Amino acid sequence: WVQCTKPECRKWRQLTKEIQLTPQIAKTYRCGMKPNTAIKPETSDHCSLPED
């Protein structure tokens, strides 16, 4: 599990088994990010989705 770092969101998201949760990902994670590439989402507001 990882928490969105966006102050107005802070929702918890479940990561897939393939993703290694590192301190860097935990510090920078935003809803919809692909942690294995550290690319921020380009599409709609993933923070608007219900918490996992």
Rank of each mutant, 00 (worst) to 15 (best):
T28L: 04
T43R: 12
D52P: 05
W1E: 06
C9R: 03
P23T: 03
I25Y: 10
E42K: 13
E51V: 11
L15P: 03
P7T: 08
R10A: 13
S44K: 13
E42W: 11
T16V: 08
K17G: 13
E51W: 05
D52N: 14
C4E: 03
K34D: 15
N36K: 10
P50W: 08
M33Q: 13
K40N: 12
E8Y: 00
R13S: 14
P7G: 06
S48K: 14
S44E: 14
K40F: 10
C9H: 10
V2Q: 01
E8N: 15
T28C: 09
N36S: 13
R30S: 06
D52G: 11
R13Y: 04
Q14A: 04
S44L: 10
C4A: 05
D45C: 07
E18T: 11
G32N: 04
P35H: 07
Q24L: 14
C47G: 10
K6W: 03
K17L: 02
G32Y: 01
P50N: 07
W12C: 03
Q24G: 10
K40W: 02
W12K: 02
W12Y: 01
E42P: 10
D52Y: 13
T22V: 02
R13M: 05
T37K: 10
K27L: 08
P7A: 09
K11V: 02
T22Q: 02
K40G: 14
C31I: 08
Q3G: 04
T37M: 09
Q24P: 01
S44M: 14
T43C: 07
T5Q: 00
R13H: 08
Q20M: 05
C4G: 04
K6G: 01
I19Q: 15
L21W: 06
K6A: 15
Y29C: 12
P41H: 08
Q20A: 09
C9N: 02
P7C: 06
K27G: 08
Q24I: 03
W12I: 02
I25D: 07
I19F: 15
P7N: 14
C31V: 02
D45W: 07
C31H: 00
T28V: 08
P23C: 02
T16L: 00
E8V: 00
K17R: 10
N36V: 08
L21D: 00
T5S: 04
L49Q: 13
L15K: 03
E18W: 08
C4N: 02
N36T: 10
E42C: 07
R13T: 12
L49R: 13
K17D: 09
T5K: 03
P7F: 01
R10T: 04
C9T: 01
E18I: 00
C47I: 07
E8W: 01
S44G: 13
H46I: 15
K6M: 14
I25R: 04
P35D: 13
R13G: 12
K11A: 07
T37P: 09
Y29E: 05
C4F: 06
L49W: 11
Q20S: 05
I19M: 11
G32C: 11
Q20W: 10
R10Y: 06
K40L: 08
Y29T: 01
T5P: 01
Q3W: 00
P23R: 01
T22N: 06
Q14R: 07
H46D: 13
H46W: 14
E18N: 15
M33I: 11
K17S: 15
K27Q: 11
T16S: 12
I19P: 08
P35F: 15
H46Q: 11
N36Y: 13
T22E: 06
A26R: 14
E51R: 07
L21N: 07
C47D: 10
K27Y: 03
E42D: 14
S44H: 12
T22G: 03
T37Y: 09
G32A: 03
P50L: 08
I25K: 05
T28A: 07
K11Y: 00
M33C: 07
T37S: 11
I19C: 14
C47Q: 09
D52S: 09
V2E: 00
E18P: 08
H46C: 13
L49E: 15
A26W: 06
R30C: 09
Y29I: 08
S48A: 13
E51Q: 06
K40D: 11
R10S: 07
E18S: 06
Q3T: 03
K40Q: 15
C9Q: 01
T22S: 10
S48E: 13
T37I: 07
V2F: 00
R13I: 05
T5F: 00
A38K: 14
P50G: 11
T5E: 01
E18Q: 00
I39E: 10
I19E: 15
S48H: 13
T43A: 14
P50D: 12
I25F: 15
T43M: 09
K34C: 09
Q14L: 10
T16F: 08
C31N: 01
I19W: 15
K17M: 08
P50S: 12
W12F: 02
A38E: 14
P35T: 08
T28F: 08
C9Y: 02
R30M: 12
C31M: 01
A26N: 07
T43N: 09
P7H: 06
L49H: 09
T28G: 04
K27M: 11
I25V: 09
C47T: 09
L21T: 01
W12P: 01
R30A: 10
I19R: 06
P23M: 00
P7Y: 05
K34W: 13
C47L: 07
W12M: 06
K17A: 14
C9I: 00
P23D: 00
Q20K: 14
I19K: 05
K11M: 03
P23K: 03
K17F: 00
P35E: 12
A38I: 14
R10Q: 08
L21G: 03
C4R: 00
H46V: 11
S48F: 08
Q20D: 05
Q14E: 03
Q24H: 08
L15Y: 00
Q3V: 03
I19L: 09
I39C: 15
K17T: 08
C4W: 00
C9S: 03
I19H: 06
Q20V: 09
H46N: 15
T5N: 01
Q3L: 03
D45H: 07
R30L: 09
C9E: 09
K34G: 12
D45S: 10
P23S: 07
C9D: 07
C31Q: 00
W1H: 05
I19V: 13
L21Q: 00
Q20L: 07
H46F: 13
K11T: 03
Q3A: 02
D45K: 12
K6P: 03
G32L: 01
C4Y: 03
K6R: 11
S48Q: 06
Q14K: 07
P23V: 01
T16R: 12
N36Q: 11
P50M: 14
Q14Y: 02
K11E: 09
K6I: 11
A26S: 08
L21R: 02
V2Y: 02
C31P: 05
S44R: 09
P35K: 04
G32T: 01
R13C: 14
T37W: 09
P7M: 07
K34I: 15
Q14C: 06
K34A: 13
K11W: 01
C47V: 14
Y29V: 02
V2C: 04
T5M: 08
D45I: 07
E42V: 11
G32F: 00
K17Q: 05
E8Q: 11
E42G: 12
I39S: 09
P23L: 04
K11S: 06
A38V: 12
P41A: 11
L21V: 05
M33K: 02
S48Y: 11
E8K: 12
T22W: 03
V2P: 00
Q3K: 06
I25N: 06
M33F: 11
R10I: 03
K11P: 00
I39R: 09
S48D: 15
Y29Q: 04
W1L: 04
Q3F: 00
C31K: 01
K17N: 13
T5D: 02
Q3C: 02
A26M: 14
L15I: 14
L15W: 11
Q3S: 00
D45E: 11
Q20R: 05
V2H: 15
L49I: 08
T37E: 13
P23H: 01
P35A: 14
A26Y: 08
M33E: 07
A26I: 14
R13L: 06
W12V: 01
A38Q: 13
E51C: 05
R30H: 13
K34E: 13
Q14S: 04
T28Y: 05
V2G: 05
P50F: 07
N36D: 14
E18G: 12
C31G: 02
W1R: 02
G32E: 06
A38L: 11
C47E: 13
T43W: 09
R10K: 13
Q24V: 10
Q14D: 00
N36A: 09
T43F: 11
S44D: 14
C9L: 05
K17C: 14
K11Q: 06
Q24A: 12
K40R: 12
T43G: 13
P23W: 00
E42R: 12
K40I: 13
M33N: 06
K34R: 15
Q14W: 04
A38F: 12
D52A: 06
C4T: 01
N36C: 06
T37R: 10
K11L: 05
Y29H: 03
V2W: 02
Y29D: 05
E42S: 10
A38T: 13
L21I: 03
E42L: 08
K11N: 05
K6Q: 10
T28H: 04
K11C: 07
L15Q: 04
I25A: 08
L15M: 11
Q24F: 15
L49P: 10
E51G: 10
L21S: 04
K6E: 08
K17P: 14
Q14I: 02
T43Q: 13
C31Y: 01
H46R: 11
K11I: 07
P35R: 08
R30T: 15
A38W: 10
L21A: 05
E18A: 06
I39G: 14
P50I: 04
S48T: 13
M33H: 03
L49Y: 06
W1Y: 14
A26E: 08
S48V: 09
L21E: 01
T22A: 02
K17Y: 05
R30V: 15
Q24N: 15
E42N: 01
Y29A: 03
C9A: 05
L21M: 07
M33S: 09
L21Y: 06
S48G: 14
C31W: 02
K40V: 14
K40S: 10
C31A: 00
T43S: 14
C4D: 05
E8T: 14
K40E: 15
T16I: 03
L49V: 14
C9V: 00
N36W: 09
Q20N: 04
A38H: 08
E42H: 11
K27A: 14
E18M: 06
Q14N: 04
C47R: 11
K6N: 10
E8R: 06
D52K: 09
D45A: 11
